[in-house]
Amino acid sequence: MSSTQYDQRPGLAPQAPSSRGRESQEMIPGPVIELERVSVCLGGRSILQEVSFSISPGEFIAVLGPNGAGKSTLLKVLLGLVRPSAGSVRLFGQAPRRGNQLIGYAPQHRTLEGALSLRARDLVGFGLDGHRWGPGWFVSGGRRRQATIEEALAEVDARQLADMPVAHLSGGEQQRLLIAQALLSQPRLLLLDEPLSNLDISHEQEIIALIARLCRTRGMTVLLVSHDVNPLLPVIDRVLYLARGHAAIGKPEQVITSATLSALYGAPVEVVEALGRLFVVGVDI
């Protein structure tokens, strides 16, 4: 038996998150992401089955679910790296494609190869022009490029790290750099895959506050994959819960309930409140 646990903070104000994102809603009409009966098969295995949902501009969404539920695969579908076997995916009204400048992406934490000879500013700079042909910075690595990079670093409170070797930075610091890198293409949608894994509690809080601030000030839509909704409850608008290839989307208090999760898992699941927290308990979760 395994269990996934969520705790609910007493101070959660449900109406607070919905009051923002208005401005950006006017700028881009219609949903940012729209999935209609999307199915994905990878290597003959069905990952997602007829998943439908839509996400509005400026929303902060937590993507939850057990391991192997297809959370990372969903992000790859949005990035145009995985093609769905059925259904339609629309991003800003268009089909997904690789290299979409409107999307910023930070994948799951891994050790970067040979990272010892890379400074934070070099890593962040990839977000600016890493995809462009030509020698670039060692011909025109001018002051303006560095200023842009430092601006991005400042936006994630990491300006003091600019000249540090990436390999010497902690998980939280590296996470900041990846976010800064993703911001450099001025994305309207930020996809973050497990940005909170490998972080201790205080760094976790800092990263969440940072992402929430970016979401609000930039009017940017954020999809954040996490195995734990607890620390996110005060800042998110809705949760997208994936299990057994199916999805449920809604406000946390609507989705993380015994009835919804039992229907999603297709097995009895109990949401229990104990010690001021919500625990999701069930067989084979």
Partner: peptide, 8 residues
């Protein structure tokens, strides 16, 4: 991974 997502 990121390079691929950025269209490289």
């Amino acid at each position: 991974e990121i390079a691929e997502a950025r269209g490289v």
